[in-house]
Write a protein that binds this DNA or RNA. Structure first.
Length: 444
RNA sequence: GACCCUAUCGUCCAGUGGCCUAGGACACUCCCCUUUCACGGGAGUAACACGGGUUCGAAUCCCGUUAGGGUCGCCA
């Protein structure tokens, strides 16, 4: 008998999405997709949070950003709703009366507690293996507070039953809680789902990753301009691997290969460096269209005015290989769009502010002015011709030219940069540089 | 403290009794490529926590110790 695969991600709306939570969601999603099952989003807001709407939105945004679409649940609907625990009171009441009938609960100062069977509980965890819990010493579980609100463990179990969850995939911090949950299932005489407890994500120093730690919040990656596919790829590799030493691996292939039993049992620590590197790899191999798409919010936020889309695409095309984070895009391209760019004084001092350099720049300007074909190859040839004529190294022309047109010492390939900027703009900037720094050669 | 999980380079993974004088990737160092910065190529540093078993043979199996993490809430 094949019960359909149904898994859920059940975050509590705390106002941010932790990378550990994102990875739990990802593993659930991968498992659902691998088995053609359903991935459900349930919001565990039994503890009436203050800014629920906003907090829930952050969860939606994070999951969507990672491309983890849910088939059923909050913000989507489905056959097993409502998907907010705060709206499921009647259901919990129903299950409570069931337990009452069986005499398995009792009142304690207004709260309702579940009487433990006090017998050992065995859990066959898909990741951790067979685990035996000695329940003899544990206190009884509270399931409802005096004010009528519900405790997580109870609501969680009831919801998993009602939503017909087949596999509970969650963080290892719930491993010992599972014994309590299993007791609840037994009391309700319902076969528990399969459990898979995935290891936690820790900081580099081994401490538990908490809200304020660098890299802990998914929102941080969005803000810094990571490519979602890169972060998702990195998260896949935290506790799981394709077993063949590959690092960059497409999501379709991960779905095909994904298997709970291959998940590592060891806690992982988050390597921001590697995530950063992988992001660079993704950008390097990304299409220009995708690159442009992911750059957009940052270009917009920086107030760069783009009137010519094809010019922008050309510019992005030559800086793409330099970019590691989309956040850095504006800085790499701003001077392509305005003549009033910031000049690095150090670069000017070093390569431009000497009469010799300005002379060379003037020679180059004269040569470029007569340029018929304004192409990278043509410009390179001309520049080298001038270098030969003046008897200087190409670098002695390249560097002043770069600083003259961009204000900085680092940038994309000079010839391509000049070609894209266009003759008019380049000659103008050469002139501007010669004017403003000529006669300012106060140094020896 | 009790209970549970875990233990391979600094980090992420590979390794499931002999192919391991332990492999890949990130980071780091050096070299090459190069107009800058990157990319790319090459080389290098670096690990089976410890102690007992089992076995002809152990990173791989068992036990213990130690260490780390988790749970013991009327938080989720």
């Amino acid at each position: 008998m094949n019960t359909p695969t149904r898994v859920r991600f059940a975050p509590s709306p705390t106002g941010y999405l932790h990378v550990g939570g994102a990875r739990t969601a990802l593993f659930n999603w991968l498992f659902a997709r691998h088995n053609q099952g359903a991935f459900i989003l349930r919001i565990e807001d039994t503890d009436k949070s203050r800014e629920r709407e906003k907090a829930v939105q952050i969860i939606y945004d994070g999951l969507r950003w990672l491309g983890l679409d849910w088939d059923e649940g909050a913000g989507k609907g489905g056959q097993h709703g409502p998907y907010f625990q705060s709206e499921r009171n009647d259901i919990y009441e129903r299950y409570l009366s069931l337990l009452k009938q069986k005499g398995m609960v009792y009142e304690d100062d207004g709260a309702i507690r579940f009487r433990s069977a006090r017998k050992p509980v065995v859990v066959d965890d898909l990741v951790c293996g067979r685990i035996e819990f000695d329940r003899s010493m544990d206190p009884d579980l509270t399931i409802r507070r005096p004010d009528g609100s519900w405790i997580f463990h109870f609501a969680n179990v009831v919801d998993d039953i009602e939503m017909k969850i087949s596999h509970v995939i969650r963080g290892e911090d719930h491993l010992t809680n599972t014994a309590k949950h299993v007791e609840l299932y037994s009391a309700l005489e319902i076969q528990p789902p399969k459990f898979a407890h995935i290891p936690l994500i820790l900081n580099q120093d081994g401490s538990k990753m908490s809200k304020r730690d660098a890299g802990a919040s998914l929102a941080g990656y969005i803000k810094q301009g990571y490519a979602p596919e890169a972060v998702r790829n990195y998260l896949c590799l935290l506790g799981w691997s394709p077993k063949d030493n590959r690092e960059k691996i497409g999501i379709e292939e991960v779905i095909a290969l994904f298997d709970l039993t291959k998940i590592n049992r060891r806690n992982a620590s988050f390597d921001l460096n590697k995530c950063f590197w992988l992001n660079g790899q993704y950008i390097l191999q990304m299409s220009l269209t995708r690159f442009r798409e992911l750059s957009q919010p940052f270009i917009e936020a920086a107030g760069i005015v783009v009137s010519d889309e094809s010019y922008l695409l050309n510019v992005l095309g030559i800086v793409k290989e330099k970019i590691k984070l989309f956040r850095d895009v504006p800085d790499w391209i701003s001077y392509f769009f305005t003549d009033s760019f910031v000049t690095e004084s150090e670069a000017v001092e070093k390569t431009l502010k000497s009469s010799a350099a300005l002379d060379r720049l003037a020679q180059l300007r004269a040569k470029f002015a007569g340029e018929n074909e304004w192409t990278p190859e043509g410009l390179e040839l001309s520049l080298k011709t001038i270098a030969a004529k003046l008897g200087c190294k190409t670098g002695e022309l390249v560097h002043p030219a770069r600083v003259a047109v961009s204000g900085r010492s680092v940038g994309p390939s000079l010839y391509h940069m000049l070609a894209i900027m266009g003759k008019e703009r380049v000659l103008r900037r050469f002139d501007l540089a010669i004017q403003s720094f000529n006669g300012n050669d106060g140094r020896s």
